[in-house]
């Protein structure tokens, strides 16, 4: 079987179990020390690693675009079993919207070169836009097979089953291609001791926009086509009622719904 080269895009995001916030600059606070590998990208890594394991000659490169701390995300990928890591970091990337991030990732995938398959998670748990995978595919001129709940790569063909709001679909394309995988696709592995030790010897390549030949004015706040103009924590809900059932809670619930004009 010919060699396959897989790039997995992973994002470093604020831990969803932590108190997440937007700063005075209306950007996601990313340096509170509460950052972590986007949980949904573990499914992307798992998918890539299991495809690679089924081949004699496969290579998995884990890629992130983000500030200094984001290196943790690719390190976790190396610990899970990826062969190489690329971290694109540049002050000019700050404030990128999805189009800007897609531009940088596309340039990085091209820099890695000879890529047969790009795998992403279904969404970043910070913005939850799910826009990036298709945007990246379009920039790389690759067929996109998003939201894989099942994924198979057979020879040069990739096939995906996906569950949408109103339908189930099966999509197929020839490699090279891009897939995004959902949390239904697999059960991500935990890095084991061997993996953690091996990862210490693996190299993380750090790249800047200049290394990638990306024009800084097309990314970051400079290139963004959207701008957050207001952000505020949602005020706590008022007039909350908490009661313990003493035999009539169902009646009281019904009365509440009627009183609130919800029925």
């Amino acid at each position: 079987m010919p060699r396959v080269r897989i790039v997995v895009c992973v994002k470093h995001v604020p831990d969803i179990q932590s108190e997440r916030a937007l700063g005075p600059d209306r950007r996601v606070v990313r340096d509170g020390g509460d950052g972590t590998l986007n949980e949904l990208d573990e499914n992307a890594l798992e998918a890539a690693l299991s495809i690679a394991e089924a081949r004699d000659d496969a290579e998995v490169v884990v890629l992130t675009v983000g500030p200094d701390d984001a290196v943790d995300a690719v390190r976790k990928g190396l610990q899970m079993g990826a062969d190489e890591a690329v971290h694109v970091v540049d002050d000019a990337i700050a404030g990128s919207d999805v189009i800007g991030t897609a531009r940088v990732l596309a340039a990085a995938v091209q820099h890695v070169g000879d890529v047969d398959l790009v795998v992403t998670g279904m969404a970043g748990l910070d913005g939850l836009t799910s826009l990036l995978p298709t945007a990246l595919a379009q920039l790389l001129d690759l067929p996109a097979l998003p939201l894989a709940a099942e994924l198979t790569v057979d020879g040069g063909t990739v096939r995906v089953r996906r569950n949408l709001d109103h339908a189930t679909e099966v999509l197929e394309a020839s490699l090279p291609a891009l897939v995004s995988v959902t949390d239904q696709a697999n059960e991500p592995r935990y890095p084991n001791f061997k993996g953690i030790m091996a990862a210490r010897k693996k190299q993380v390549t750090t790249l800047t926009l200049a290394d990638l030949g990306v024009d800084a004015s097309t990314v970051g706040a400079a290139g963004a086509r959207t701008e957050v103009v207001d952000a505020a924590a949602r005020p706590p809900r008022e007039n909350r009622v908490l009661l313990t059932d003493e035999g009539d809670a169902g009646l009281r619930l019904a009365a509440y719904l009627v009183e609130q004009k919800l029925v």
């Binding site: 909350r240 009622v241 908490l242 009661l243 313990t244 059932d245 809670a249 169902g250 009646l251 619930l253």
Partner: peptide
């Protein structure tokens, strides 16, 4: 906004019937 500490198997049918 409205919380009931109770067993769903008694609270829900009672609310539905009401």
């Amino acid at each position: 906004d409205f919380g009931v500490v109770g067993d769903l198997f008694t609270v829900l049918p009672q609310a539905a019937a009401e």
